[in-house]
């Protein structure tokens, strides 16, 4: 039983990270109907930004209280990836908006290849290990819960609340939802559609940066290829939950985190990704629009 609960905790932690990245996929998909394949690499970029900021802090001040350090890392990583995604959207996606559906998908794949190789070229191809930032572990009724897991789940919960508030209760969120429903009509009603889409990209990137920072803290290592697998998993999470649905993205993320850690705990770790992808396929076969996605009504 304790073992099971332990795995649940691990799964939730991992799932939080996936969920944060998945939101970026789902928001961009919701607003312009495009799979932003480069989003995983934005996540990786966020991790690298956090790493570099950490090293700067270490170099400048020797040691910084970890809470403050984490805060600064997250903040700068968010700004950084936000700027990157803003520029990427403007240069690679906006010129293709409204054209051929596959064209932005291809530029996004190209962008993903370019970003990971950019980091490889500028930061080197090797693994980047950091000493453990947070190492305390608490024993709660026989279950080992580490401080970093608490931080990850807590930060995710706080961010999701803020985020949920923005989307549902602010003029910006209203503009986003309107643009999502009908871009032309939103523009006619005076919503600056370009700006709204840009902000969506920036918001998605900022969440990915947080996830990247958490990932770095959790695993203590990052490498330029780290955008791909977590990116695909997060995309899987978004689709599993029903792409376009925000709660769906979080739910999908948590599910994938749980599947992964439970599968690794009870079966073989080698096939954990096979399990994840198989469950995705099975869910979609029975529920073709994901768990919380609106079922697509075929208009005849």
């Amino acid at each position: 039983m304790e073992y099971f609960v332990q795995q649940l905790v691990n799964g939730l932690t991992l799932g939080s990270i996936y969920g944060l990245v998945a939101i970026g996929y789902t928001m961009v998909y919701g607003i312009i109907g495009m799979v932003n394949f480069a989003h995983g690499d934005i996540f990786m970029l966020g991790g690298f930004a956090a790493l570099i900021v950490y090293l700067i802090l270490l170099g400048l001040f020797g040691g910084v209280p970890i809470a403050l350090a984490l805060f600064i890392m997250i903040l700068i990583a968010m700004l950084m990836t936000g700027l990157w995604n803003w520029v990427i959207e403007k240069m690679a996606y906006r010129p293709l908006r409204g054209s051929f559906r596959l064209a932005p998908l291809i530029t996004a794949i190209g962008m993903s290849i370019a970003l990971s190789n950019f980091i490889q070229v500028t930061q080197g191809p090797r693994n980047k290990p950091v000493p453990p930032l947070v190492s305390s572990v608490y024993d709660v009724f026989g279950i080992a819960i580490s401080l970093k897991q608490i931080i990850i789940v807590l930060v995710t919960a706080i961010l999701l609340t803020i985020f949920w508030y923005i989307v549902n209760h602010t003029p910006l969120g209203r503009a986003q939802r309107a643009t999502e429903q009908d871009r032309k009509m939103a523009a006619l009603l005076g919503i600056d559609v370009d700006k709204t889409i840009s902000i969506t990209f920036v918001m998605g990137a900022a969440l990915a940066a947080v996830a990247g920072t958490m990932y770095l803290m959790y695993y203590g290592v990052i490498v330029f290829t780290d955008g791909f697998t977590p990116g695909v998993k997060a995309f899987t999470a978004a689709v599993l939950g029903g792409i376009g649905s925000l709660p769906g993205a979080v739910l999908g993320g948590l599910m994938i985190g749980l599947i992964e850690s439970l599968w690794s705990a009870y079966f073989t770790i080698d096939y954990k990704d096979v399990a994840t992808f198989s469950i995705l396929a099975i869910v979609l076969i029975f529920k073709p629009s994901g768990i919380l996605g609106r079922p697509e009504v075929e208009k005849v």
Partner: peptide, 21 residues
């Protein structure tokens, strides 16, 4: 060689923006 895939990725973007079809 290091720049190979970087340039490949960038070329994908440029060609697509230039000729979406």
């Amino acid at each position: 060689e290091l720049y190979r895939m970087l340039i490949f990725g960038l070329a994908m973007i440029v060609v697509m923006v230039w000729k979406p079809r």
